[in-house]
Design a protein around this nucleic acid. Structure first.
Lengths: 156, 156
DNA sequence: TATTGTTATACTCTATAACTATA
DNA sequence: TATAGTTATAGAGTATAACAATA
């Protein structure tokens, strides 16, 4: 076995990938894997996942948002929000408050600790976005975002 | 309950998403989810997943490729290749052949049935890529692919 | 000692169905 | 009857560790 780990990935040999190489489906996946790893890394020391970061951010900008609204906005299924929020609540980063008018609904708010952590997370996240600009250039990054929006929002 | 399903997603209200909206991390994820759904749809009637399609394609262009080479090329962990290939073997789309020189290695080849199915899958996949061109335009799609390559392959 | 394919395990994510309490 | 949050469950995917056969 080499250096540290078991099951380490062997150095890639010349594998012909051409039919997949320049396709949206394949490259989008590869780029997304790479960025996901970056995000995992920059948030690892805070024990925060990408979804948790999104929840904190959207909650900060939409105080009192309902769980199902979070789920819709972040494109996760509603049952998935439960354990995600449970974790954030248990860490004292957000609170669930019963809606006064609608007994079914519980509204999410950041705590002060949540605000403070989120500020730090946003600093890290901004640095990551800055790295993207360094790789792509300002203009190309902007075109990329516009293309991605078109792909994500196109009528289905 | 509305039309068909339980847990159907409620129509989105005005949720302020601005800090995430125009970021590479968030939009890449959203676009990738959308394309994944497309791929799932176009291959559903053949009961083929995106990874299986990639395996068939890479195998077609690299006959006799080893499992660990497939894993490396497709960026999946080697243990993951086992059930993926098991499924393809059980459907008679690929075969595992013992390497004559190296008793550890098993080399993957497409069967005739595999070749035929793959031809049909590629027709569907090409139509999907064509839809991307219709959404983005030829030039913008090309710029997108180049940007995605930069993000995926940038030194880490 | 190292590598290939494999088994095993644990954790995450996705997707659905269904329950409860409210409306 | 419909909705919000929740629980439960099944199926993928991710990530590691470790084993048997082979090098």
């Amino acid at each position: 076995m080499p250096a540290g780990k078991t099951n380490e990935v062997a150095p890639a040999r010349a594998v012909e990938m051409s039919p997949l190489n320049r396709t949206v489906g394949f490259l989008l996946k590869r780029a997304q894997i790479a960025i996901s790893r970056d995000i995992h890394e920059i948030f690892a020391e805070f024990d925060v996942t990408a979804v948790q970061f999104s929840v904190l951010t959207v909650t900060a900008n939409n105080p009192g948002i309902a769980q199902h609204e979070l789920a819709t906005a972040l494109q996760v299924e509603r049952p998935r929000m439960v354990p995600v929020l449970d974790k954030l609540v248990s860490r004292g980063l957000v609170v669930r408050r019963q809606d006064e008018r609608d007994g079914r609904s519980r509204r999410i708010h950041l705590t002060e600790a949540g605000e403070e952590l989120l500020a730090e997370l946003h600093r890290r996240f901004a640095l990551l976005e800055q790295r993207m600009v360094e790789v792509l250039g300002e203009e190309e990054r902007d075109r990329l975002l516009t293309s991605l929006e078109l792909l994500a929002d196109r009528p289905r």
